[in-house]
């Protein structure tokens, strides 16, 4: 008998700023080396997805109208919190992975730096991507980017943390609210990320995190009218085609890329404004100029 019995954490979904168990009442096992044991994660259902969309929709106007300065500070705070839990995150990355401990910490560090990078974009993107348009005639004509709205995020299995963080921070810094599907094979780091986000002054509903199977959730995400865009990488051809077909009904924006695992490390590329741009809508204002 051990002298003291561990108090194991119950891993939950993160919806509307709260940690909740799945409506499905189902879970799935994940090997976690920390305790040399198996932990159980929620298998999110369609209802959980709908709750997340509702939370993300309610949070939309507040997050979009928060100043870039404020959003930047909140993203930076996420980096600070992740730095504090660097070791714990490294361990979570070890679940079901063959990375060395050093490699895992490198991925955590790169993820922290990625958050810092995107934190800086939130009050600059308008200047880079917006502008004044020289129309002939007595008009002021300006174009300003605005967030698309609710963005569903489907990150790849590897790199389990860095890809999810990069794909989350891009729409987030520009004022979108998000629903992040944890990578199916390696869901622990993303699930832990929820606990970091919950302590970073991110308003409730701005980030929602679901664990479970893609098959359970992706189709419903494509169908849901209040999800305005979906960001995904490396989907199988037929999955992507199906996603696009279902998204057609609500004229949803589908942003899909093919990205190799090493490519996520290229900060200049992955943190470029063109990774934020797919989640922006350009609004153009005309006003006459006259006395």
């Amino acid at each position: 008998m051990p002298q003291r019995i561990d108090v194991a954490k119950t891993w939950k979904l993160y919806i509307g700023g709260k940690f909740v168990r799945s409506e499905s009442g189902q879970s799935f096992p994940v090997e976690h080396r920390r305790h040399g044991t198996t932990v159980h994660l929620c298998r999110a259902s369609r209802k959980d997805l709908r709750d997340s969309v509702e939370a993300a929709t309610s949070a939309r106007s507040g997050w979009a109208s928060a100043s870039g300065y404020l959003r930047g500070q909140i993203l930076y705070r996420m980096a600070e919190m992740l730095e504090c839990r660097r070791t714990e995150m490294g361990e979570a990355l070890g679940a079901g992975s063959n990375q060395t401990p050093k490699q895992r910490l490198e991925e955590v560090d790169a993820s922290i730096d990625r958050l810092v990078g995107f934190a800086g974009w939130s009050d600059k993107i308008e200047q880079i991507l917006g502008g004044q348009n020289p129309v002939p005639g007595p008009y002021y004509n300006i174009t300003v980017p605005e967030p698309t709205g609710v963005v569903g995020i489907v990150p790849p299995d590897k790199p389990a943390l860095l890809a999810a963080v990069s794909m989350l921070a891009a729409p987030l810094c520009a004022g979108n609210t998000t629903i992040l599907l944890a990578p199916e094979q390696h869901p622990l780091p993303t699930t832990l990320l929820g606990e970091i986000i919950a302590t970073s002054d991110v308003p409730a509903g701005v980030v929602n995190i679901l664990t479970g199977t893609r098959d359970d959730l992706l189709g419903h995400m494509a169908d849901h009218r209040a999800v305005n865009a979906i960001s995904a990488v490396n989907l199988a051809e037929e999955t992507l085609t199906d996603l696009r077909k279902r998204a057609a009904e609500s004229i949803k924006r589908i942003h899909h890329e093919r990205v190799t695992a090493p490519a996520w490390k290229k900060h200049e590329d992955r943190c470029s404004p063109w990774k934020v741009e797919p989640f922006l809508e350009m609004k153009t204002l005309w006003h006459p100029s006259a006395c």
């Binding site: 348009n133 020289p134 129309v135 002939p136 005639g137 008009y139 004509n141 174009t143 350009m282 153009t284 005309w286 006003h287 006459p288």
Partner: peptide
């Protein structure tokens, strides 16, 4: 304060 204005330079 205007409506239906279009131009090639305006998105």
């Amino acid at each position: 304060n205007t409506y239906n204005q279009f131009d090639a330079a305006s998105p």
